[in-house]
Design a protein around this nucleic acid. Structure first.
Length: 409
RNA sequence: GUGGGCGUAGCUCAGCUGGUAGAGCUCCUGGUUGUGGUCCAGGCGGUCGGGGGUUCGAGUCCCCUCGCUCACCCCA
């Protein structure tokens, strides 16, 4: 017997019940983003490897160890996209969108890929929904972006939501602050955990994520990034917060918030759900004012976020209503099969959700099947044409197929 | 990459110290020679993840391996 082939590690099949839940979330996204005038955008699932190396940052975990990279037959290095923002910025540059009216607002939904060990809420192929607004650094865009995410999560029914918001300032202030923090930690090296010590050169800010007691002690009187923001950045952040407060969003100000990608500047945010396991982040994002320029475009500010579709659904976990036909066409006589088939098509063309017998079952089996499907009516086609109301059990004959259609449509 | 848990029917699982592979649900058929929801009877469905070893005999014990899963790291 041939060996069974399984879906690759870290991937999954979406079966119809789950598919309906995902489709609902997609439709919800379209409605929310559409009325805020964000347009749908699609970019390729694979891109030149260089796009992510440059855009996301060479030393990030994503680029260093999580990319699905391969050479095509022409020897070009391609990578299955690990995130969406770099691609959107690439498209913005490639299509000269800086000449369109600014800001350019887009939203996307699609598969992303990271080579990691799978666990609850983490897959190698996963789905993200996200929004981006490019071409203006107005703080209202930051606030709008965050509030769109909050609205999506609320309407999706995600439970246990917690927002954290901060500002990283410009790349320059962050660099200066990193140096300052690194020196502070170096002076307390003996208290730090090995992890933190190992990352000290590359990314000292990560130390704040550690729950190691010694590290925490060493950080107690450490300088804080929010106190080091340049005046512009501090004012910008204050305005963002004002708008969020006015909108009534509940969030935590968290000066230790560090995101895993290099391109963030100024506003950053993350949402998590207490309903999830260890992978509790539902989504996150922020402002990336240097990214478009880094990718060869004109200096262009931008802000946006991405959220994990599987994780939102995990945090919402609403029971899915199975789809049910309103009519089931049963066959009492094999000779009527063609007529029954035509009847089903006719009903469907009039918008009636219709299922028909296509498995050679006995009439009893068909009735049982129709009942399990939850059909409201069964049309029994044979020597006569009968319409049965499944709830009441009442049944009557009609003269022609046309009469049956007229009654059920 | 590292560590814990788990792999027996499509699904959920039982199978005590080794002795002829089971249950419930699902699906199909029949009880009702053209009629569902309850009930009853029957049927389909298994290389017990794979390989090797011990044994008269292995789902059960030993070794290896593969897969799933949770966690660390990091993140969606």
């Amino acid at each position: 017997m041939p060996e069974k082939v399984q879906a690759p590690r870290g991937t999954f099949d979406v079966l119809p019940d789950d598919g309906r839940a995902r489709l609902r979330l997609l439709e919800l996204s379209e409605a929310i983003f559409g009325r805020a005038n964000y347009g749908p955008i699609e970019t390729p699932v694979f891109e030149a490897t260089e796009l992510f190396e440059r855009g996301v940052g060479e030393t990030t975990d994503v680029v260093e160890k999580e990319m699905f990279t391969f050479d095509d037959q022409g020897g070009r290095s391609l990578t299955l996209r690990p995130e969406g923002t770099a691609s959107v910025c690439r498209a913005y540059v490639e299509h000269g969108m800086h000449k369109a009216a600014q800001p350019v607002k887009v939203w996307y939904w699609g598969p992303f890929f990271r080579y990691e060990a799978p666990q609850a809420g983490r897959y190698r192929q996963f789905t993200q929904v996200g929004v981006e607004a490019l071409g203006s650094d107005d703080p209202s865009l930051d606030a709008e972006s965050i509030l769109l995410l909050a609205e999506l999560l609320e309407l999706a029914g995600a439970r246990g939501i917690r927002f954290r918001v901060s500002s990283l300032g410009t790349a320059a202030t962050r660099r200066a602050y990193s140096d300052e923090l690194r020196e502070h930690l170096r002076a307390r090296e003996d208290q730090l955990s090995d992890d933190v010590l190992g990352r000290l050169d590359r990314n000292p800010l990560r130390a704040f994520d550690s729950d190691h007691p010694g590290t925490q002690a060493a950080l107690r009187d450490a300088p804080r990034l929010l106190d080091r923001l340049a005046r512009d950045d501090a004012e910008h952040f204050a305005e963002v917060r004002l708008l969020l407060d006015d909108a009534g969003l509940e969030y935590e100000l968290d000066g230790t918030l560090v995101r895993g990608l290099d391109y963030y500047t100024r506003t950053v945010f993350e949402v998590e759900s207490t309903e999830l396991g260890a992978q509790s982040a539902l989504g996150g994002g922020g402002r990336y004012d240097g990214l478009v320029e880094l990718l060869g475009g004109p200096a262009t500010p931008g802000v946006g976020w991405a959220a994990g579709v599987e994780r939102i659904l995990l945090a919402a976990k609403e029971p899915v209503e199975p789809a049910r036909p309103s009519v089931f066409v049963a066959l009492a006589d094999g000779a009527a099969a063609a007529a029954a088939f035509a009847l089903a098509r006719d009903l469907r063309s009039r918008g009636v959700a219709t299922e028909l017998e296509q498995a050679g079952r006995s009439l009893k089996g068909q009735m049982k099947h129709a009942d399990r499907l939850g059909a409201a009516h069964v049309v029994i086609v044979g020597e006569s044409i009968e319409i049965k109301d499944m709830a009441s059990g009442e049944q009557h004959a009609v003269a022609t197929m046309e009469d049956a259609v007229a009654e059920l449509a």
